[in-house]
Design a protein around this nucleic acid. Sequence first.
DNA 1: GTCTATATGAAGATAGAC
DNA 2: GTCTATCTTCATATAGAC
Lengths: 199, 199
Amino acid sequence: MRDNIRAAAVQLFAEYGYHAAPLRDIARMAGIQAASIYYHYANKEALLVEIMETHMRHLNANLERILREQHDPLKRLYEAIANHIRLHTSYKSEFFIIDTEIRALEGENRRYILSLRDHYESLLQELLQDGMEQGTFRLSDIKVTSYAIIAMCTEVSTWFRPSGRLSVQQVIDMYSQMITQGLLSLSPGAQSLEESERT
Amino acid sequence: MRDNIRAAAVQLFAEYGYHAAPLRDIARMAGIQAASIYYHYANKEALLVEIMETHMRHLNANLERILREQHDPLKRLYEAIANHIRLHTSYKSEFFIIDTEIRALEGENRRYILSLRDHYESLLQELLQDGMEQGTFRLSDIKVTSYAIIAMCTEVSTWFRPSGRLSVQQVIDMYSQMITQGLLSLSPGAQSLEESERT
DNA sequence: GTCTATATGAAGATAGAC
DNA sequence: GTCTATCTTCATATAGAC
C-alpha cells in the first residue's frame, strides 16, 4: 500500500503540482481514505521528500559509478549523458517533480534535497574539469557548462514519449553529439561569426 | 495600482508558486485588501495569464524581428540566443513563472499560453531548418535541437544573479559558443568516441 | 491498517457600504 | 477604488472505533 500511495502521489504531483494535488485524490487513487495515508507517511511533505530522495540518489549513485569505472573524458561524458537521459525518460514524472517542486519543501527537507542536487552538479563538474585538464574539452566556464548540460538533458523528461517517434538511445546519441560537437557543420574556426559576415 | 498588484504577484508566484501564494499576501504587498484586487483583475488566474502573456509576446516579437531583419543563419542564431538570455535575465521571475506554472492554467487560458510557446518553438525551428538547408548547420533533428537550445537558455533564469560573477553578455557568448561549437577542443571528427578508445 | 467523524484553518471570491 | 464583513469550499491533519 505504501507503494500504491507513492505511485498515486507521483502521478498527481506531476500532473497538477504538489500544492494542487489533494491528499483525498491521492488516497482515492490508491483505493483508501485520506486519513489512512497518515499510517504510512507522517504528512504530505514526507511523501514528496521520499519521491525526490529516491531518484536523486539513484542518479548520483550511477554517476559515481561511471566516474569510478571510466577514465576517458569523452566516454565519461557520454555515459553521464546516457545515465541522465535514461533515468529522466524511465522516471519521467518523478524527475519532473524533482525539477519543479523543490520550492514546495521547507527547512531541513529542502536543504537535504538541494544537497543531493549540488552533489550531482559537483560530480559533473569534476568530470568536465578533468576533461579540460586533459585537453579533451575546450576550456570553458565549468559551472555554466554543467548547468547547460543538465538543463538540456533534464528537459527531455517534459517532451519524451515512450511511444513517440524517437527511441531513448536515439535521444541519447543526439544530445551527446549536440553537447560535444555543437551545431556548426564546419570544423571549429573554419567559419566564425566574423568570417561569415563577408559572405 | 494594477502594476503594483502584478509586481507583487510576480514576486510571490516565483518564490512560492502560484497555488502556494495567497491573494491576501499579494494584496498586503501591494498595500491593499484582498477584495480590492478583484476591482483590477477578474480572478487570480487572470493575474497569472497576464504575466505570462506579456512576456511571451515580447519574446516572440523580438525573435520575429530578428528573422525579418537578419538572414545569415549564424547571426540569426546568435541574436536568437542573445534575445532569449537577455529577456530571461532581465525578467527572471516572470520567465521562471512561465516555465513552471503553465499547468496551473485551465482550459482556454492554458491553450492560449501554450500556443504562444508553440509559436516561439516554430520560429526557432524555422531558423534551424533554414540554416541546415544552407549548409551552415549540421543536419540534425530540428525539433529535438530546438528543445535543447530553449531548455539550456531558459534555465539561465534560475541561476543568474545580476550582481554575480558573470555579465549577461558573457553568458550570451558562452551559450552561443557551446551551442555552435560544442565541448570538444578538437575539430569534429578528429577525435571520435571510437578513436579515443585506442588511447 | 483502515475506517468514520471531525477539528482547524485558510483559501478564493462576492456583497454592499463609503 | 478601496474597504469590512462574510460566504462557501476545501485543505491537511488528528482522534478513536473496529
